[in-house]
Amino acid sequence: MKDNWQARLIMRLWQVLSKRPPRTLWRLASRFEPVYSLIGVRERRITRMNLRQAFPEVSEKARRQQIHDSLQHSIATMMELGFAWQGDPEAVEKSIVEVHGRELLDEARAEGRGVIVLAPHFGNWEILNFWLSSHFPFTAMYEPPKISALDPVIRHGRERMGAQLVPTTSRGVAALLKALKRSEAIGILPDQVPDWGSGEFAEFFGYPAYTATLLPRLVSRTDARVVTGVARRREDRRGFDIHFLKADERVYAREDEALSARGVNASVEAAIALDAMQYQWEYKRYRRTPGQRDNVPGWRERRFYKQGRSGRKL
Score class of each variant (00 low, 15 high):
Phe83Val: 03
Arg45Lys: 14
Val115Asp: 07
Ala62Val: 03
Glu33His: 08
Ile96Gly: 00
Pro22Met: 04
Leu38Cys: 12
Lys94Met: 00
Ala76Thr: 11
Ala84Val: 06
Phe32Gly: 11
Gln86Glu: 06
Trp125Cys: 04
Gly82Val: 01
Pro89Ile: 04
Asn124Phe: 01
Gly123Met: 01
Ala62Arg: 07
Leu104Tyr: 14
Leu25Tyr: 06
Ser37Ile: 08
Ala149His: 12
Thr77Arg: 07
Ser148Thr: 14
Leu104Thr: 07
Phe122Ile: 11
Gly40Thr: 07
Tyr36Lys: 05
Val117Thr: 01
Leu28Glu: 09
Pro144Asp: 11
Leu25Ser: 08
Arg63Cys: 08
Ile39Glu: 06
Leu104Lys: 10
Arg52Leu: 15
Pro145His: 13
Glu93Thr: 00
Ala110Asn: 13
Leu81Gly: 04
Trp85Leu: 03
Pro34Arg: 10
Glu103Val: 10
Gly114Asn: 09
Val97Glu: 04
Ser74Asp: 10
Ser30Phe: 09
Ala91Phe: 02
Pro21Glu: 08
Leu38Pro: 05
Met49Val: 15
Leu25Asp: 05
Val117Lys: 00
Gln72His: 05
Pro34Glu: 06
Pro34Thr: 11
Arg113His: 13
Trp85Gln: 02
Leu132His: 02
Glu90Gly: 00
Pro34Gly: 11
Leu118Trp: 02
Ala54Gln: 08
Val99Tyr: 04
Leu71Lys: 04
Leu51Cys: 09
Ala62Thr: 09
Thr77Ser: 14
Ile46Gln: 04
Gln86Ile: 00
Leu118Arg: 00
Trp26Tyr: 05
Asn129Ala: 13
Ser95Pro: 01
Asn124Val: 05
Ala119Cys: 11
Thr139Ile: 02
Arg23Phe: 10
Leu38Val: 12
Asn129Ile: 02
Gly101Ala: 07
Gly112Phe: 13
Asn124Ile: 04
Phe83Lys: 02
Arg102Glu: 14
Ala91Asp: 02
Ile46Asp: 11
Gly101Cys: 08
Asp106Phe: 14
Glu107Ser: 15
Val115Leu: 10
Phe130Arg: 01
Ser30Ala: 12
Thr139Ala: 03
Ser95Ile: 00
Phe130Pro: 07
Ile75Asp: 04
Leu105Tyr: 04
Tyr36Asn: 05
Ile116Ser: 04
Gln53Pro: 00
Glu60Tyr: 07
Pro89Ala: 03
Ile116Thr: 07
Pro34Ser: 05
Asp69His: 12
Glu60His: 10
Val41Tyr: 07
Phe136Glu: 10
Ile127Leu: 08
Ile75Pro: 06
Ile39Pro: 03
Met78Pro: 01
Gln53Thr: 12
Asp69Ala: 14
Met141Val: 08
His100Val: 08
Ala76Trp: 03
Arg48Thr: 13
Ser37Trp: 03
Ala29Gln: 02
Glu33Asn: 13
Ile39Leu: 14
Met141Thr: 11
Arg109Leu: 13
His100Glu: 12
Glu107Gln: 15
Ser70Glu: 07
Gly82Pro: 03
Arg63Lys: 06
Arg23Pro: 03
Ser134Val: 09
Glu57Ser: 14
Asp106Lys: 14
Ala140Tyr: 03
Leu38Thr: 08
Ala91Thr: 04
Arg52Gly: 09
Arg52His: 07
Phe138Pro: 02
His73Met: 09
